[in-house]
Each structure stands twice: as structure tokens, then as C-alpha cells.
Design a protein around this nucleic acid. Structure first.
Length: 295
DNA sequence: ACATAGACCTGTTGGC
DNA sequence: TGCCAACAGGTCTATG
């Protein structure tokens, strides 16, 4: 489900409920998500006070005063909802994705916080996962060790793209989806960024930075990636399919998609072409055959 | 190093 | 309406 903007919006929503509060009770309704929960997962969290909630790539990380860290990945269908103990039914402005209150079949993890907030993790497909580690071990942790740069940081530059793409015959789309290069992009924002940059998804990544056209392409791509992520954040992320919002604000970037999910519809550049959908790396790629014809 | 396919899961949608 | 195939925001593994 979520790519960088959605994960960041979820983090911002969870922060008021988690930061400065301790885990009063942690309930696991099953033994695993994508991976088994580690032994004593709930016991180790209980009583830990959350100092801050951060994000790295598509992970939300709750760091406790003790240094114990809880990493949470939403997979494809992971959602957090927040409700208060006191009034029960209330969904606070913090919660992002929310389905039917009655559908608790896939509520796999419940955090009861010391401030009265109850945070539920719901994930029908269970591609998400949670794991614990010590803050000092984060850099070498298998989940984080190989991650690429944050696209919204100053580390993403046209030169970085050109350097990492150098010599690669791999398709631009696969290059951008590789979390070891840039961490946080997924299928939607890669498609959207390539459209904004006017670059073909199946062109060789290695062409970036080569010659005048390649140099210009790297610059456009860099700006497009940052631009589309910033616009998505401002819109509160994208909510597609049956996902709905708890509070109505945010989550409207899907209305601004130029290509994703628009197969057969006219290009927003009014070039006269229709958006094409095709499979690439086993996933759907959407692009304008005219505006994204060549590097 | 790369591409491809399959795996993990459940739910929704579209075609017949 | 029913059934079935295809597809879904992610990533990991095996295989060529």
C-alpha cells in the first residue's frame, strides 16, 4: 500500500499518540505477520516510553528512552488506527487509514498507550512486519544496512542519480524501485516521477548523465522525484481502492495522478496520446508513449 | 549483475 | 447471481 508519502503521513498521525507515552499493554492476535514476532516481543515493549517516532525509507521507527527501537513496515495493506480508551468510538485526527470499525478480523497488533490512546495495526495481507532492535545496532541491522538515500534529503542530486546509474542497462523503472539506490519510492511514485521527467520507464538507466540529453534527464528526474513526493505529502498521500480516511483531511493525491491507474485515458499534457499500461518487472507501469518516448 | 518468476496473503473487481 | 482469473501501494528468494 504505502510508499514514502503515505508512511510519512502515518508517522505524523501516530506521533501525537505515541511520543511521550509508554506501552501499557501490547497484544498480539497472532504469532506472525510476514515474519514471526520475535520471542518476548510484547514483554520487551511493555513499559517502554517512546521518545520519538521517526521514519527511514518505508519504516516507521519508535525509539524508546532506553534505546529499544520498534520498526514497523506496512507492507501492502497495513493500516494504523487510533482510538481513545475513554470515549471508545472516537477516531482521532491522527489516524490515517480506516476501514469499517466492525472489521477487526485483521487487527493483528494492539498497543494500549499510557496516555489512553489505543493503536491498532490492521493488515489483511500480512505483508507488513514489526521487529525490535537497539538504537546502536540500527546502522548494521539487516533491514537498514543496505538502504539507499532519502529522496527528500540533499543527498538526492542529479549527480547521485547519474553516478549510481552509470553502466547499468537495467530499466529506469527497476532502477528507481531499487531501495538500495533510493529508499521510499514504490510503483505509484516511480510512474508519476518518470512522467513528470518525460522519461521512458524501460530506457536504460545508464543513459542518465551521459551527454547533453542524459545530463538534462538526470536533472529533470531528480526534480520530478522530489516534486512528486512533496506534492503527495502536501495532499496527505494517496488513498486508493477501498481505503478511507478517518478525518477527511489529507490523502487526496490519487486525484492528481497523471499516469497511475489511467490506462486508456488522455495524457494530461494534452499531447493527444492515451496513457498506456504495460507489465514491467511483473508490475503495472503506466506512461505516456508520446511524452515519455525517449531520454 | 541482471531479469524473470514465484512466493508470501487476502480482498476486490471485471468479464463471461 | 455465480464463478474465476487477474490484479493490488512491497519485498524476499530461487533460478537462469
Amino acid at each position: 500500500m504505502p510508499e514514502l508519502p503515505e508512511v510519512e503521513i502515518v508517522r505524523r498521525g501516530l506521533a501525537p499518540a505515541m511520543e511521550g507515552a509508554a506501552f501499557s499493554a501490547v497484544t498480539l492476535n497472532r504469532a506472525d505477520l510476514r515474519f514471526p514476532f520475535e520471542p518476548r516481543f510484547a514483554e520487551r515493549l511493555r513499559g517502554q516510553n517512546v521518545a520519538r517516532l521517526t521514519r527511514r525509507a518505508k519504516y516507521i521507527v519508535a525509539e524508546a528512552d532506553s534505546g529499544l527501537c520498534l520498526a514497523m513496515h506496512l507492507g501492502m495493506t497495513g493500516r494504523f488506527t487510533i482510538e481513545r480508551h475513554s470515549d471508545g468510538a472516537g477516531i482521532t485526527p491522527g489516524s490515517f487509514y480506516y476501514e469499517h470499525a466492525a472489521d477487526t478480523r485483521h487487527d493483528h497488533v494492539v498497543f494500549a498507550m499510557s496516555n489512553g490512546e489505543v493503536i491498532r495495526y490492521n493488515d489483511p495481507r500480512r505483508f507488513g512486519y514489526m521487529t525490535l532492535f537497539d538504537a546502536g545496532d540500527m546502522a548494521e541491522h539487516a533491514l537498514f544496512r543496505g538502504l539507499g538515500i532519502e529522496p527528500l534529503s540533499d543527498a538526492l542530486t542529479p549527480d547521485y542519480l547519474a553516478a549510481r546509474a552509470a553502466g547499468k542497462t537495467q530499466a529506469l523503472k527497476a532502477f528507481l524501485l531499487d531501495q538500495r539506490i533510493i529508499a521510499g519510492l514504490g510503483n505509484i511514485y516511480v510512474c508519476e516521477a518518470l512522467f513528470r521527467a518525460g522519461l521512458p520507464p524501460d530506457a536504460a538507466a545508464g543513459a542518465l548523465g551521459i551527454g547533453k540529453r542524459g545530463t538534462a534527464a538526470a536533472a529533470r528526474l531528480c526534480a520530478a522525484i522530489k516534486g512528486v513526493l512533496e506534492d503527495a505529502l502536501l495532499a496527505g498521500g494517496s488513498s486508493i481502492r477501498d481505503y478511507r480516511h478517518a478525518n477527511g483531511d489529507g490523502g487526496h493525491f490519487q486525484e492528481k495522478f497523471d499516469v497511475y491507474g489511467r490506462g486508456g485515458e488522455p495524457c494530461h499534457n494534452d499531447c493527444g496520446a492515451l496513457i498506456v499500461r504495460k507489465a514491467q518487472q511483473g508490475r503495472s507501469t503506466f506512461f505516456c508513449p508520446r511524452c515519455q518516448a525517449r531520454i
